[in-house]
């Protein structure tokens, strides 16, 4: 155990958590509204990374500006994809959507291979490697890492605002809570699903664009990250964005501490998230929020009653 490392490792973990959260929001949103696990998530992130690269190479657009173009683009793609393909399988057994989105992943992965070849790419700009030091804490922080972290936090704030303050956001939340009731109160669940799917894909794309600036990538990019996203949303209780942010933090801390503080081999780092994914699914199917006694909205298996019923009106 190496406690001397704990501060820099923790700071590193927090910065990483921002990234983990960003890449998981889209997955969580799509799951919440449509009860579909987006297995093409890895492919979307990879595609967005290449798009960022192309925008820079062909049009000289600075990668940090790329999300401004990438997000709307993938929003539209996501909506179109939902309308044309995913909608056809709403209500089918979970496995049908899983396999469909999985096949989409295979297709875009190989399409990317045909277009951009299997070579590993990375985006190098003067600012991508620059860092600053905090002497007092003996800490070096990459500007890019900090930027990506901030992007994650800002995304969370905007999302939270959007979900609680706008009609569309409220409709999305209502649909997440109970699709049938949402229909009953006049929400166009079909349209909400389409928009939510678009936003979800746009968020995955945002994560991909951000990743492209700090990690090398090839068409196979994203598989491990996708599994980590699953671990994050499962930890976060699947449908709450704050839960996802907390899940991201827990996962990032667990990974970084395992290696940096407890001296685990770096090669085994991913084992932390894979085991977390499996263990949390089995032991804490409602994620961390259930530990805090806060029930996720979709929860079906009731906990012990906390309050006496008022009037006892069984619907």
């Amino acid at each position: 155990m190496d406690l001397g490392n704990i501060l820099p490792v923790t700071v590193g973990a927090i910065l990483l958590a921002g990234l983990y959260a960003t890449m998981s929001y889209g997955l969580g949103l799509i799951y919440g509204v449509m009860r579909i696990v987006n297995l093409s998530h890895a492919g979307i992130m990879m595609l967005a990374a290449y798009t960022t690269l192309m925008l820079y190479r062909s049009f000289g657009i600075e990668p940090y500006l790329a999300p401004v173009i990438v997000m709307p683009l993938f929003f539209v793609i996501g909506m179109g994809f939902q309308r044309l393909i995913v909608r056809r399988i709403t209500g089918a057994a979970p496995i049908v959507s899983l396999l469909l989105l999985f096949s989409v992943w295979l297709i875009i992965q190989n399409a990317a291979y045909l277009i951009w070849s299997g070579n590993t790419q990375s985006i190098l700009r003067p600012y991508t490697t620059r860092s600053f030091r905090i002497e007092a804490l003996d800490l070096t922080i990459g500007w890019m890492r900090l930027g990506v972290f901030l992007a994650g936090v800002v995304t969370l704030i905007i999302l939270q605002f959007f979900l609680t303050r706008t009609y569309l956001g409220k409709a999305i939340r209502a649909t997440t809570q109970d699709r049938d009731s949402a229909k009953l109160v006049g929400i166009d669940v079909d349209r909400i699903s389409m928009v939510a799917f678009g936003i979800g894909i746009a968020l995955s794309a945002l994560a991909g664009a951000l990743f492209s600036m700090i990690l090398p990538f090839n068409p196979d990019f994203g598989r491990v990250l996708m599994l980590k996203s699953f671990a994050v949303i499962v930890l976060g209780g699947l449908t709450s964005f704050v839960g996802i942010a907390v899940g991201a933090l827990v996962l990032a801390l667990a990974e970084e501490w395992a290696v940096g503080v407890f001296g685990m081999q770096t090669a085994l780092k991913d084992l932390v998230s894979f085991s977390a994914l499996v263990l949390v699914l089995i032991l804490l199917p409602n994620g961390l929020p259930s530990l805090l006694g806060r029930m996720p909205v979709w929860r079906t298996k009731p906990a012990r009653p906390t309050t006496a019923p008022t009037g006892g009106k069984a619907a």
Partner: peptide, 19 residues
Amino acid sequence: LRGFYFAIATIGIAEATRL
């Protein structure tokens, strides 16, 4: 686990085993 949860957990198991 049912439905996707099972499928996704199996991916986790497989990748963990490989590592």
